[in-house]
Write a protein that binds this DNA or RNA. Structure first.
Lengths: 137, 137
DNA sequence: TTGCTTGCAAATGATTTGCACTGCT
DNA sequence: AGCAGTGCAAATCATTTGCAAGCAA
């Protein structure tokens, strides 16, 4: 899947890129760049950044920005499934959650309604739930 | 209100801070630092950053980070009202929206449920709706 | 070969900080 | 007077980029 997405954009699925995708697949949760380099120490920082940017563009990777610190990276939703994020305000840990399908449907309906009122056309949404994770509680 | 929040933290409500609050009040939408300085040209960049950080800490201001560019600042929800953001993927414009109270209630209920399953205790949430604004459509 | 990729080191740019000065209290 | 707040210029630090060398089609 990742390979196809890249090929469509005339991008190669190189070893470095495969390593990144494998690392993101193996850890279920979004990771920072330093964390990614720990998972795959043979990657060089600049190439990792460059390849993440290319794969983000190609729809393989998603970049999350939350505080001022490092951004987090995860596989794009088409390669996984639609989900949201629990963010621990103490330690910065980010984990995934999925909401009930009917609730998602209600949200989408509400968002569509905005188009009429304001002229804004929604494409996708992201919900961040801030709080305390189990280990920081 | 802003003054009280600052006083509680033994912070003064100085002219510079008042100017920032007034500027944020006058433009309904979240603004970047450069935009804020345009609204209030007598502010100096470093003091504006410093005061925004202090007021964020005091719960007067909220900082939003979305792409890689400048962060956006707005008045904290206790000084305004609970709302979410429409983000234009073309021009970066951010505007506020409020959802139906019953939908918010369903969301909160769903989030509370997470505490039981995962041990995560939710404090607040933010919904970002990405798409095209009226002028970029 | 020809051009995309890589890794290193250097550059960028938003935000932060040191410091001397001003202004409340 | 005494300490918090300000503005300037310099420092930070995540991320990006230039460039020479490596590798794949």
């Amino acid at each position: 899947m990742a390979r196809e997405r890249l090929m469509e954009r005339d991008q190669r699925y190189t070893t470095g890129r495969r390593r990144i995708v494998e690392a993101l697949t193996s850890t279920g949760a979004p990771v920072t760049l330093p964390a990614l380099l720990q998972l795959a120490p043979e990657l060089s920082q600049s190439s990792a950044y460059r390849n993440l940017a290319i794969m983000e563009e190609a729809g393989v990777v998603r970049r999350l920005v939350h505080g001022a610190e490092h951004a987090h990276y995860e596989l794009a939703e088409d390669l996984t499934e639609h989900h949201h994020h629990l963010i621990c305000e103490d330690c910065g840990l980010i984990t995934d959650v999925t909401l009930d399908a009917s609730l998602e449907r209600s949200l989408d309906r509400a968002f569509e309604g905005l188009a009429d009122e304001s002229g804004f056309s929604p494409r996708h949404h992201a919900i961040d739930i801030f709080g305390r994770c189990a280990s920081c509680a």
